[in-house]
């Protein structure tokens, strides 16, 4: 039996801001239906990797293949159409649009072979949002904004979901809800790349982990292996 091609394939990705090189050859693969977490301290390049994949920062070298199609260096809207869905760390919900309108902005045609997301399905995934349809984005709580940001991106029926620190700045109970949501998405077969500071959060949702340090991947493997490897954790994550 032939293995299906990886959902996302990143090879030797280089990127930076101005003169500062942040990524110095990042490579990893993400299989369909898998949740991979990028771990690492501040400035290690987690967010930069996500931005470079999304085309918000132009990679200086390297290849990014999404379901076989090379998207490195393309413009963000083309990358989004090709099937990368980005949920930014700052959430960036449109403050003056209602929750329902926020979702509409994200709407893109369905993708062959994937059940299309609809507002109804998303309100089932995030029951908290169902009662807030007509509420402007600025007038919902931080946790609810995070849910809207994820739902809005899912409306574009992405092949791969990029989640940048979805638990950041949220109350522990809301973090629990995020974990539930990601696990639910996983059951639906979603492919997720997660950037995260918190190993505890990662441990609850991820299948595999990759640790970034000064712009390179220095450790990669199953999340359970990382949890068991106290040496690697102390070396790379100081925990």
């Amino acid at each position: 039996m032939m293995l299906p091609p990886p959902a996302l394939q990143v090879e030797n990705l280089h990127a930076g801001y101005g003169g500062a090189k942040i990524l110095r050859g990042v490579s990893f693969e993400l299989a369909a239906g898998e949740v991979l977490v990028l771990l690492g301290r501040n400035g290690a390049g987690k967010s930069t990797t996500i931005k470079a994949l999304m085309g918000l920062l132009r990679p200086t070298a390297g290849r990014v293949r999404l379901a076989g199609q090379d998207i490195a260096g393309a413009e963000p809207h083309r990358i989004a159409r090709a099937g990368l869905g980005w949920v930014p760390e700052e959430r960036r919900v449109f403050p003056d649009l209602t929750v329902a309108e926020n979702l509409e902005v994200g709407r893109r045609p369905a993708r062959a072979g994937l059940a299309p997301w609809t507002p109804e399905r998303l309100f089932a995934l995030f029951p908290n949002l169902a009662g807030l349809r007509a509420r402007p984005g600025a007038r919902i709580s931080g946790g609810e904004q995070q849910m809207v940001a994820i739902a809005r991106t899912l409306m574009g029926n992405p092949r791969v979901l990029l989640l940048d620190e979805p638990g950041e700045g949220l109350a522990p109970v809301i973090v629990d809800l995020m974990v539930e949501a990601i696990l639910a998405l996983k059951r639906e077969g979603a492919t997720v790349l997660l950037a995260e500071q918190s190993l505890a959060f990662a441990a609850r949702v991820a299948d595999r982990a990759a640790i970034l340090e000064t712009g390179r991947i220095v450790w990669e493997g199953a999340i359970d292996a990382l949890l068991a490897d106290t040496g690697a954790r102390a070396r790379h994550l100081q925990v």
């Binding site: 999304m54 918000l56 413009e75 963000p76 809207h77 989004a80 159409r81 980005w86 930014p88 960036r92 449109f94 403050p95 003056d96 649009l97 309108e101 926020n102 902005v105 994200g106 893109r108 809005r152 991106t153 574009g156």
Partner: peptide
């Protein structure tokens, strides 16, 4: 939407 955050709109395709 673009009035409020144009880069986000682009990132949504």
């Amino acid at each position: 939407a673009a009035t409020q955050d144009r880069d986000m709109v682009a990132a949504l395709g």
